[in-house]
Design a protein around this nucleic acid. Structure first.
Lengths: 233, 233
DNA sequence: ACATCGGTTCGGTCCTTGCCGAAACTTTTG
DNA sequence: CAAAAGTTTCGGCAAGGACCGAACCGATGT
């Protein structure tokens, strides 16, 4: 058991592979060459990394024509990465570079985190929903109130998949919150977070910036977030 | 950011260090030589590993006389390890050795997992409490019912610290459940799990087996678990 | 059919790092 | 004050593995 533990951790512990994993953290599938580019290594090297990672079960691969698309094998991998990030972003104090870089700034503003929204945007949305009593956030769980359910339906979000979860008292328990590594505060993850994220993309409120997990808030998005959530970015 | 991510993961990804971390997973503090023994390396080698691990913030060290005691720096590290184990125990199918070893068997029967009970015992307790409607376990949260609160008070468990958490409807949301890597089913973690674990130790229901995280259920424990929880081990 | 492109396999180099023994340092014990 | 125990530092060795260039393979497109 402890061998396999070490194997998994070591796989994630090599800088090149770590960058590949991070590039896949938004749940999309990338090709081998794209991953080689993000890791800054040659295609042969990347290929070796990828085959090991697939064999170990961290990644899935699907061949499509002459491309091979790699993606995280499931949410458990993303959760593991978040848990590592949580430790990594802890205090070991006054270490090197805080932030820097425009790319980093974009990521801190808004990004996807596997299947939900993160960064300043994700935290702001969580705060807004909390303030309006649409959700309650505890350290361990996240509850959607009746009012919240109405609210989501009103803004055009399909709440049907959320019904499947456990009902308790007057609210629905949806998921654990997810600690945002850049903001150090919880944002909405789980079923609700995923629904909110996909809806925001479909409605054109946010748009993926090519090549990163960063998101851009569109004009329509600014308006929608302001009117529906009372957010000003 | 991704550098530090890789640093942390790599630290956990070396077999010797991984074994040390596992030995510390029950939250106790061990000396450098003890850790050298569990990792199967010489004291100098272990010392090197430990100093790196401490500098990275995974472990805390406290000097006491001529001993230096190392322990996990906090719950975040334990949670990270559990997340890695979750991935590690996933399907990458039909791999090598399942189980084996009497030491391993003891661990599978009952052990501590940072601050709560795990293994067959942990899962059985979770099942028993669920069956009696004392807790409700969902995928994402764990709710203590009023009946459960009464029950715990009746068996002498101090429920005061549990009161601090969020109240919702008729139950208390305590924590996320924790997937047991040997049983592949959820057991009780979080505040309730910790309380139940420490109470079981204090009441003499279980006893730590020296040198491992494994636990032994005492005669008194067998009786208590049977009478209070309806468990037969 | 041929050229091109994405990807993997092979062979070989180089660097990292895990490892130990010897020795030094510190604190406890006799 | 000397001896012993716990731990760290130093020096050197050896193995693992990350890397690249070249060659190879299969799919696509002309």
């Amino acid at each position: 058991m402890t061998n396999r533990f070490a194997e998994i951790a070591a796989l994630a512990g090599e800088p090149g592979r770590a960058q590949m994993l991070h590039a896949l953290l938004d749940g999309r599938a990338l090709t081998a060459n794209e991953l080689a580019a993000v890791a800054g290594v040659s295609p042969p090297t990347a290929s070796g990394h990828l085959s090991r990672t697939v064999k170990a079960g961290l990644l899935d691969v699907v061949a499509q024509g002459r491309h091979r698309y790699f993606r995280l094998s499931g949410p458990a991998v993303a959760e593991m990465m978040e848990a590592i990030m949580k430790v990594a972003s802890a205090q070991p104090q006054a270490k090197a570079s805080l932030t820097v870089g425009p790319k980093d700034r974009a990521l801190r503003r808004a990004r996807t985190c596997y299947d939900h929204l993160a960064g300043a945007l994700g935290v702001a949305l969580a705060d807004a929903l909390t303030a309006a009593d649409h959700v309650e956030l505890t350290e361990e769980a996240e509850i959607l109130t009746e009012a919240g359910l109405d609210f989501l339906a009103r803004i055009g979000l399909d709440v049907a998949p959320l019904q499947a979860r456990q009902t308790r008292g007057s609210g629905r328990i949806l998921c654990r919150p997810c600690l945002d590594w850049s903001e150090r505060r919880p944002h909405l993850a789980g079923a609700l977070g995923a629904a909110l994220c996909s809806h925001s993309l479909e409605a054109g409120w946010v748009r993926r910036l090519s090549g990163t997990r960063a998101l851009e808030v569109t004009r329509a998005g600014e308006r929608a977030f302001k009117e529906s959530f009372g957010l000003r970015l």
